[in-house]
Design a protein around this nucleic acid. Sequence first.
RNA 1: GGGGCGUUCGUCCAGGGGCCUAGGACGCUGGCCUUUCACGCCGGAGACACGGGUUCGAAUCCCGUACGCCCUACCA
Length: 622
Amino acid sequence: MGARASPPLRHLARRGRPPAHGRQGPGLRHRRGRRRQPPPRLPRRRARVHPAPVAGQVGGPSPWPRHRGRGHDPDAARQREGRDRRRAALRLSRHQPVRRRGRGLPLRHHPRRATSRLALRRPPPTTAIRRRDRMSASIPSIPVDPSRPVRVRIAPSPTGDPHVGTAYVALFNRCFAKKHGGKFILRIEDTDQTRSTRESEAAIFKSLRWCGLDWDEGPDIGGPYGPYRQSERLAIYREHAQILLDKGEAYRCFATPEELEEMRRTQKERGAKQPYDRRYRNIPESEVARLLAEGRPHVVRLKMPIGGKAVITDGLRGEISFDNDELDDQILLKSDGFPTYHLANVVDDRLMQITHVIRAEEWIPSTPKHARLYEAFGWQPPAFIHLPLLRNNDKTKISKRKNPVSLEYYQAAGILPEALLNFLGRMGWSMPDEREKFTRAEMEEAFTFDRMHLGGPIFDLDKLDWLNGLYLREQTPEQLVARLREWLLSDEYLTSVVPLVRERMTRLSEFIPKTSWLFGEPTPLAKEAYVPKGKTQAETWDAVTAIAELVDKQVRWEVAPLEEAFRKLCEQIGWKPKDLFSIVRLVATAATAAPPLFDSLVAIGKARTQVRVRQALTLLKP
RNA sequence: GGGGCGUUCGUCCAGGGGCCUAGGACGCUGGCCUUUCACGCCGGAGACACGGGUUCGAAUCCCGUACGCCCUACCA
């Protein structure tokens, strides 16, 4: 039941074992003939033995597993096409001559190439500067209108715990804004009445601030374009929906959920491209009036063009085109009178004078709808820039199932905010001189979108730990103490925790061993240890699954609500509290003896509890 | 199923017609330092998805194939 000191994150995302080396004979690795023969002379690119005087240069290469064998080969054609488009876009926007092809010109003047070589050999900052001057910085790859201040925003929806993805997008938005002397705005997208909570919103503010990603305008600090909470702008959306209705760009749809359900089925059978058959798009005014008079619930939908293509421009990818027939008539206003993301986001971006929409890649497919909305309103759309998606080990979009995603977790796990930010900054982006370690300010200074790499980066906790270690090691003892105090060794936290173990202590020295699971990462027990008497491992796994769901859903992370929730769960799944609670305790603390369960959970906090439950889940997986 | 995006070591990045014998970092690994561990240092294994084309020359440009991912909600 010990707690491991601190290589906390590495075990979380399980990964395959690194491939064994040394076993292959010289002949087996076909691929690198070149590597096999001893270099006749000192390979010069290796000669750069002495790292850089630059801070943060560390040496050494590396590996990790991925599922090699069974083909993992993406679609080259499309990609290339896409990539070309993207390059074309960058080129154009940079006002650079189109790169010439072939024709035997020794391309040694290619700016990127030439300078980057230099950067490798002698890393000092000057190279970075020189390089930047030559290509990007002064020549933004994304249109920036000098007469209009850059305004960007993030628009998280307060429906859960503060997410690393939010911090990721926020970082890039903020860097872009700072680079161009613009404003970075926080807007709360709480148009989903059923899922949004104020707790979540507050947690987002707190975590973002912890990261150092503060904003210039937002719900809590106000600003000239408020309110910044969409639930407080309902009238604005209704008004705008009405404008569209009046212009004939939108229409009311009275289809019921059941009707839509059935429609989806039949549309699919007919091989239609959209799930909605537009049946209310052209009904007569009189009919609309009649249904309205009846008080029939309805939504407002956007009229998408029939036939033809929609072309949008992504700042990183260039033009992307869609068949209009693939796009359905997007719901703008839900039957509860709340707008959907699509309407709210367009209206707010416009009203808040957003110049660049920098968001995650998952939004690409709905961008043509947004573009269409701008058009319907007669507005000039902002520039769209889609960032790659952070991924789990298996390349799927990052998720709490497979990774710790809550910012609160990283904080509680002892990650320093500057390390997290630095790490996030390395996801899909690189410093001109390729250094790994840099501050937020340095990133802002050097920021350009053309150093963006579009492959979806896998969130590698090992590397985060390494970076974090770097930052930790450069703290003076005084600073470190201060850091520890900001972390869990604050008077406040200790005061909240001490009562839990007070009656269990006979000496002060027992405090630390008795609370080790609070400050370190407990080492999970053997599988069997979690299975209560009379239960099977499969049953236990089911129970832990239920526990995981409960924990995810639990909003009020306090003793009484937790106890209530867990007791309810016992009833639901027909477990005795004794058995279920013992599992919870083991999962949360890996300790056979611990203070009262729910107090312990509160002390551990939701984020860490969540991660521990996930770990147990993978451990116990049948 | 349809649409879209993406693809360089296991992972994160660099390189985008010749400077490439593809570079750095994490991880792994051998060694040095050290009473131990960690840090640090020195070394090693490790990738241009595949097939065509263009070119004197392709990781880089073009075409195709494969694979992965995202979207396909009265969620964002």
